[in-house]
Structures are given as C-alpha cells and as structure tokens.
C-alpha cells in the first residue's frame, strides 16, 4: 500500500438502480476515507448498501455518480483490464458464499490469483502450503471444495484473498455461514494479517463478533453513512446494533 494515499477514498459516491419512479439509491452520497492498515466493519440493516459499496470499492460495478479511489487511483476511470490488474495486485475478496471454484482443489483455488500474476509454480505452491499449515488446512490441499466443511472452504477463500499480499481485503459477510469456533479462527487469521502485514480490511457484516474486533465501524442506512466512528477492539457500542431511527 502506498502510504501517501488513503487505502480507500470515496467522494460523493452514488449508485442508483433503475430510473425515474422506480429508481433505488443503493449508495447515497457516501464520502469516506479509509487509511492503510484499518480494520473496518461496515454494518447496517439488510439492503442498506453495504455490499454495493464494497463492490464499488472493488471496481466490480460502476458508480452512478462520484468517485472511488483505491491507493490513490480512480477506479471509475479505469478500463476493465486495468481494474482487473488493480484487483489482482492490490485487492483480495472474501465472499459470504465462499465462492471457491468447484473444479479446482483447495490448493489450486488458493494459488489461483498467484498463477494469474505469473508466480512460478513451485514458489506459489510453497506459499500456499505454508499458509494452509498456519490456518489449519494442512493435508486438505488436494480436496475439492465439495469435500470441505464451510469453515474450511472459507479459510481457503481467505487464503486465496491474502496470499498475494494485497493491500486491501474486501470481505462480504465472511462469517455468515460459519459456526462460532470457525468464525473466531477466521477472524483471528485476519487480525493477524492486519497487524503483521498492515493489510487493510473492510468487512460487510451483521455479525457482532466481527464488529467487536473492528477498530472502526461505519453504519450505513438506506445507502448513506449514518455513523462512522473509531472504537477500541473488543468493544461494541450500543448504537451499532440499535434499530434504525432508535437514536
């Protein structure tokens, strides 16, 4: 991550689906600055625009208005191959539904971005095996996703997201399908990466365990930022889980 720039910066960001009377503003004038190394939880009720905001940051969809900058680079102004290159080099994705490629083994899934980067086979496999060992996936390298538990699949997905040492990891409900033990293990891995490698994490989440570990919480309501606050890890302010309009 280039420390001279924020990890993520959005200015007057809008994303509107549909037109006229049926238009829905999924993201509504969002301006944010997220610095390198932050551990941020995006929370809010379903439909509040968390996933859309993450997709905008990752360049997976175009803003209707406004600007997204990752590492100082205007994502909206990039061509599709340039965005792909940005994602490949700088961004790791972790999805709620794991989204491992079913025809690849756990090891092949994890090494996939490294292969796209042209990293030599031995080098990338060594890196995968080392990380698998660290996150409790040792011995499962040759299993296809269908032969792994939900927790194991999500750990493979995390390995895939972080193996290339990205500056930013966008995680959309990463613990939604995991039990408590698996969630804690996964979050522990992410915290470690955040602290040791200064990787910026942005989570979309409903999970209080994630929010508790975050050092900054941004609450979205109806597509706009209702509250954005730093906090101490391990704490969970009341407003985070309060019903909309309760404050």
């Amino acid at each position: 991550m280039n420390e001279a720039y924020p990890a993520v910066e959005t200015r007057g960001l809008w994303k509107t689906f549909g037109e006229g009377d049926t238009a829905v503003h999924a993201v509504h004038d969002v301006s944010l600055v997220i610095e390198p190394g932050e551990f941020v939880a995006l929370c809010g009720p379903s439909g509040s625009g968390k996933t859309t905001l993450v997709n905008l940051i990752g360049g997976l969809t175009d803003p209707t208005r406004g600007e997204v900058r990752v590492d100082g680079r205007d994502v909206g102004a990039m061509s599709e191959p340039e965005r792909a290159q940005l994602r490949l080099e700088r961004i790791g994705f972790v999805f709620q539904a794991y989204n491992l490629l079913p025809v690849l083994t756990a090891l092949e899934n994890a090494e996939f971005p490294l292969m796209l980067r042209g990293v030599a086979r031995d080098e990338r496999r060594q890196a995968v095996r080392r990380l698998f060992h660290e996150i409790g996936l040792g011995g499962l390298e040759d299993r296809r996703p269908g032969a792994l538990s939900g927790g194991q699949q999500q750990r493979v997905a995390v390995a895939r997201a972080v193996l290339g040492a990205p500056a930013l990891v966008l995680a959309d409900e990463p613990t939604a399908n995991l039990d408590t033990q698996a969630s804690d293990a996964l979050l522990g891995i992410m915290e470690l990466l955040n602290q040791e490698r200064n990787v910026t994490f942005i989570f979309c989440t409903h999970d209080p365990r994630v929010m508790r570990r975050a050092r900054r919480i941004i609450r979205l309501v109806d597509g706009h930022v209702e509250r954005d606050a730093q906090k101490q890890p391990g704490t969970l302010p009341d407003w985070v889980l309060a019903p909309v309009g309760a404050e």
């Binding site: 792909a84 940005l86 796209l116």
Partner: peptide
C-alpha cells in the same frame, strides 16, 4: 455466471 464473476473479482483479465 457466478464463477466468472468470482474470477473477475480475483483479477482475471478478459483475455484470460
């Protein structure tokens, strides 16, 4: 479709 979306998210370029 979802798999193609995933590989795009992972940084796979169109020609790949």
């Amino acid at each position: 479709r979802r798999e193609f979306a995933v590989v795009k998210a992972l940084g796979m370029k169109p020609h790949r």
